[in-house]
């Protein structure tokens, strides 16, 4: 787009865009700043300059054992995503490279399972989990999150695989490659970027999932979502410590998210917007 723009207009647009962007980002920024304040400073009125104490971070770890929920979040999000990939990979593969008349219907049906309200099956899941002794266990929640994200994983992989040209497969077959050689030497290397993107987006989704993680855990398997939610009924004032816990809970995924903007659009619109 080679439109000529005056420097003045450009500066005007730039200022407007930055003001809007900073306003939207402000709550996150303010939580970050507050996490370096003392509790007295945190409630002493608006201020963007903290005294720079790390005390809150230390207190959160020492008093509330921050490390356990953090590790639970890592295990649950990565574990459920890898599990979902193992189940979804063959399916996406088959649908992309050996489509039948029903492939589209199956894909739409998978998507429709996402429309079922979670709360409608809250009780059955709760009772099944209770009877199987899965409440508050990492394995139970990992399976749960895997099921939640499976349709998205299948869809994402499918849209990526579909873009691999079929001619390459035929060429490989002409050269005498068997189906497994085809998969290992031709498809796998071409599919890696798509698989990586799918992994990234689903780790983010699983990390932030805040219905089942809160409903099905109490302490042992509680990830950061449940841990932070437990701060909602505090004893006394705790702004700065809450900010420290919040900052630690969102920082890793925020940074991952910044790298996944493109995949986010693709993955969450099921390939409809690229």
């Amino acid at each position: 787009m080679a439109r000529k723009v005056t420097t003045g207009a450009r500066i005007g647009w730039t200022i407007a865009a930055w003001v809007v962007a900073l306003l939207i980002f402000f709550p996150i920024l303010y939580a970050l700043i507050t996490s370096f304040k003392t509790e007295q400073e945190a409630i002493a009125g608006f201020s963007l300059i903290p005294s720079g104490t790390f005390e809150n971070y230390i207190t959160v770890e020492e008093q509330r054992d921050y490390f356990t929920p953090f590790m639970n979040s890592v295990i649950l999000s990565v574990g459920s995503t890898i599990l979902a990939l193992i189940v979804a990979l063959p399916a996406a593969w088959a649908m992309a490279f050996a489509p039948t008349k029903r492939t589209k219907d199956i894909l739409m049906w998978m998507l429709s399972t996402k429309m079922m309200p979670s709360v409608a099956v809250l009780l059955p899941i709760f009772i099944i989990f209770r009877n199987l002794g899965l409440l508050d266990t990492r394995i139970g929640l990992t399976v749960m999150l895997m099921l939640i994200n499976l349709p998205i994983v299948v869809w994402m992989l499918y849209t990526y695989f579909r873009e691999i040209p079929g001619e390459i497969l035929e060429a490989a077959r002409m050269d005498g490659a068997g189906i497994w050689q085809e998969i290992v030497y031709v498809l796998a290397p071409m599919g890696v970027p798509g698989i990586a993107s799918t992994l990234l987006l689903n780790v983010i989704l699983a990390w932030n999932e805040a219905f089942w993680t809160i409903q099905l855990t109490t302490t042992n398997a509680a990830p950061l979502t449940a841990f932070i939610a437990s701060f909602s009924s505090p004893q006394g004032l705790f702004w700065a410590k809450l900010s420290a816990a919040s900052t630690m809970a969102i920082a890793p995924i925020l940074i991952l998210g910044w790298f996944s903007q493109k995949q986010l659009v693709r993955g969450l619109t099921f390939g409809a917007v690229k």
Partner: peptide, 26 residues
């Protein structure tokens, strides 16, 4: 045509990655 479009994008997109309990409590 703005200066620092990449950073503006990152700032604007950020709230999406904040888990719901954190967003609500902030």
């Amino acid at each position: 045509p703005i200066f620092g479009q990449g950073i503006v994008r990152i700032l604007v997109i950020s709230p999406f990655f904040v888990m719901p309990p954190v967003a609500a409590l902030i």
